[in-house]
Design a protein around this nucleic acid. Structure first.
Lengths: 313, 313
DNA sequence: TTAATCATGTCATTACTTGTCATGTTTTAC
DNA sequence: GTAAAACATGACAAGTAATGACATGATTAA
């Protein structure tokens, strides 16, 4: 076996083990201790942060987190990594900040000037925009970490009715439109609720979770319809156009030959509140047939607005 | 110089040159032709796609796009790359698809099982959600490419009033809320308009652009206010809460000591249409003082809704 | 003090690398 | 069809690097 290959093997062995003696390596790879010492010298020369302790119970220790064997990329592959990093640009408080910076640095400096230009262009011509909010999300990293580690949390949360303590189990964390959301099982309310990470005021404590919960993907697919209500709406041509751009109605917008259309589906009563504002905007482009409550809600909102501005003309 | 180092040098030299003869390498590195042949054998053994053509005018050719020197990553750095890739998950028709797959594969297979678990967890606990639309964006890759290459385009575009031909210069491309937008200079209308990439029906032709335009970043910061209008609103506590979650008002929401607040800023008249639906939703939580048009618009919309449902009770 | 470690040096042996030379093969220009 | 320019491969000697065995020293903990 070539020296280079063997050095790589040892590198992997050693980064996995973190603590080892020369004898162990010698036995593992069937080489003499003298050679092991020589190899370790080579590895430190190559920049591996490895240090030794003499004396009984001494040995070697690898300082850094594990190093991976060197990986060969093509230029296009590296460009694709920069493309992916570009998509994180408009977020704040992301985890892996320093790692991403160091990866970017390593990769960029290995590129030739032509490819550097390409990366620069991607950076200036492509954006994954989201509202670059002034809202701070200081606990994002912690929440992500705890979610991944399957912990339960006690948090202080700023809800509509003021500051509350919550005992929750995170299902996962997701970003939408620049905000971070935390679907989590609330132990007091005994159901899964959706929290906003920026409204978490502090994490009081975390403990290992023992229970079983659905994961994030399952939660996304899971739409518990507890109070089913039929939503039945007729749409003008313009109404169809606008509804098709609303994700909520994805797939539910039916069209007639003349371009007009309809929505006829089952939704949860809890969602009516959210839907009201959609139909307020659509005005006469959408005529609701069912449910009654939605019509009542719309009228109430409309009346509220008219009442507020009745004295102005 | 060690063999390994020299092999790397040659690897870089040949990937940059793409076409070369053994003699050239021998001269460049001051080694014998025989050794060059041996090195090339080594490189192919290492997986470099290098092939030879015999005969006069023959030589070696490197098949792939340029390979970069092997790069050492720490485990955390690799995890951060997977984190970034995760953010692309809910998009369709992205460029660099195959590159990302191959990078993922290379990296994942080099990870140890412990780190693999971490990557798996990131994949199942973190999402960058956006409306995973059923809308197809077949021209996204092409549009991106042409933007980067500073081309002008003739496209067929599906606008409100039907299919139109457009002659444009792309400023850049950005994603927002799952849709791709293309700010571009319209040569006919002589101004920058915003197109939706999914509404591009075909690209008729592309030609090199000679003119100077602003770039995407400049465009983001550029808000031409042609018809300035003062927007002045007073907000209840709940109104403040809701407005702060609306990106459009970022930074413009002032608060009083008692928790109520106000918005007082200058906007463009063209934006009133969009704002109307925001205030429809807010109802009595937001009382508009100025501009008059907005109040008129709100009342009109409210009356339209009431008229539509007047016979129902 | 002793045993377990690392650290370093020397030296003979072995393994690998390199250059030179030789011999083919393939392709193209003339 | 021949010569030139290229790759392909083999053999071998000379040179270089890697290895193991052994020796010695230093450091640390039991």
């Amino acid at each position: 076996m070539s020296k280079a290959k063997r050095l790589l093997d040892i590198l992997m062995f050693v980064t996995a083990k973190k603590n080892f003696t020369a004898q162990e390596i010698a036995d593992e790879f069937n080489i003499s201790i003298r050679t092991v010492h020589r190899y370790i010298l080579d590895l430190s020369d190559m920049g591996m942060p490895i240090y030794s302790e003499q004396g009984r119970n001494g040995g070697y220790t690898v300082l850094t987190s594990r190093l991976l064997p060197p990986i060969l990329f093509t230029e296009e592959e590296v460009v694709s990594i920069f493309f992916a990093f570009q998509s994180l640009n408009y977020y704040r408080n992301l985890p892996f900040d320093s790692e991403i910076t160091s990866v970017e640095h390593k990769l960029y400096s290995s590129l030739q000037s032509e490819a550097k230009t390409k990366v620069d262009k991607i950076r200036s011509y492509i954006a994954f925009w989201n509202p670059k909010r002034t809202i701070d999300t200081p606990f994002l990293k912690d929440i992500l970490e705890h979610s991944i580690e399957n912990k339960n949390l006690h948090i202080q949360y700023e809800s509509k009715s003021g500051m509350r303590k919550k005992h929750i189990h995170p299902i996962g964390v997701y970003a939408h439109d620049g905000l971070w959301y935390l679907p989590a099982y609330d132990y007091d309310k005994k159901k899964i609720l959706l929290y906003r990470v920026d409204r978490i005021l502090s994490i009081l404590s975390a403990e290992k979770n023992e229970d079983d919960f659905m994961n994030l993907k399952e939660w996304f697919n899971f739409h518990e319809v507890k109070n089913p209500v039929r939503l039945h709406v007729i749409l003008t041509v313009e109404g169809v156009r606008q509804c098709k751009s609303v994700h909520y109605f994805d797939g539910f917008v039916g069209t007639q030959e003349d371009g007009t259309g309809y929505i006829d589906t089952i939704i949860d009563r809890g969602e009516l509140n959210f839907i009201t504002s959609l139909f307020l905007r659509l005005g006469s482009h959408a005529r609701i047939l069912e449910p009654k409550e939605l019509i009542v809600g719309l009228r109430k909102q409309a009346e509220e607005i008219l009442a507020m501005y009745q004295d102005e003309n």
